[in-house]
Amino acid sequence: MSTEHYHATSVSIPPQSAIAKAYAFMNLADAYSIELPAGASTNPELLARFIFAHQAPWIGSLMTVRDALVAGFGLKTAKRLASLEAESGAGRLSIFKIYSTSPTEIVLGEDDKHLNFRLSVLCSGQLSPGAKRHLILSTVVHCNNRLGRLYISLIAPFHRLVVQSSLRSAARVGWPSATET
């Protein structure tokens, strides 16, 4: 597999994404694209689950620190959100609520008192035979108050590292094949 399949590139949020206009004002908006190799699945939910299942161990450690810091402010912790998936299973993917799905995109996110965010896993290029196919992971955030703006200013650099690392890790493990469901 060529190294370009391991490189996550910063791109604009795709205009066809359901999150492109999720909020009238966004305090953070970014997107990263990675090429999917021939034969890889383009099922956005399967790919999202795969990405979250193959994150680098340091990301879990970072989430533990984040949870310890935000719990005192009454914000939702990853541990609490993960327990929601375990309790219900339906309508959640890892720590995220599923907002919508389509053949090319899954939109995940969460709303809290400090901010609301949406995350998109979008597969592009699958309608054109022979075209390069890409997975684009986009995030948009709308802060509800000063705490949200402070929070996003502190975590934005880590967020970008986590997204890029997650895409690279999934690529290195090897994307699920188109025959998997």
Rank of each mutant, 00 (worst) to 15 (best):
L127N: 11
S124D: 12
A78F: 01
S83D: 03
F117A: 13
A56G: 09
Q16E: 14
K97H: 09
S165P: 04
A56K: 04
L62R: 06
E45I: 11
N116D: 12
G130A: 15
S17Q: 04
S33I: 03
A178C: 05
N144D: 03
G60V: 01
P157R: 15
T9P: 00
K132C: 14
H5F: 12
S166Y: 10
S94H: 04
S88C: 05
A38H: 03
K76W: 01
A131D: 15
E4W: 13
M26E: 11
T139Y: 04
A131W: 07
P15L: 10
E110I: 11
G125F: 11
T139L: 08
H114W: 08
D30F: 01
R149H: 14
A56N: 06
L36M: 06
G130E: 15
L127F: 12
L161D: 07
T179F: 08
T104W: 09
R133A: 09
L28Y: 12
Q55M: 15
P157Q: 15
T139R: 05
R160I: 08
F50T: 06
L161Y: 09
A90G: 15
L115D: 00
N144W: 01
T3R: 12
S41C: 08
L137M: 11
K97E: 05
D67Y: 14
K76H: 06
F158C: 11
K76D: 01
S88E: 07
A24V: 09
M1K: 01
P157N: 15
R92F: 07
L28D: 12
S102V: 10
A156M: 07
L119F: 06
S100A: 15
D30N: 10
Y6V: 09
H5T: 08
R146K: 04
R146H: 13
G125R: 07
L137S: 03
A56W: 00
L28W: 12
S169W: 01
L135M: 14
A90C: 09
L93P: 00
G125N: 08
T139W: 02
R146N: 03
L47A: 13
L75S: 07
A56S: 07
E35M: 02
V140E: 04
A178T: 05
V173H: 14
S83T: 02
A18D: 04
A24S: 14
S177M: 03
D111L: 10
G89V: 04
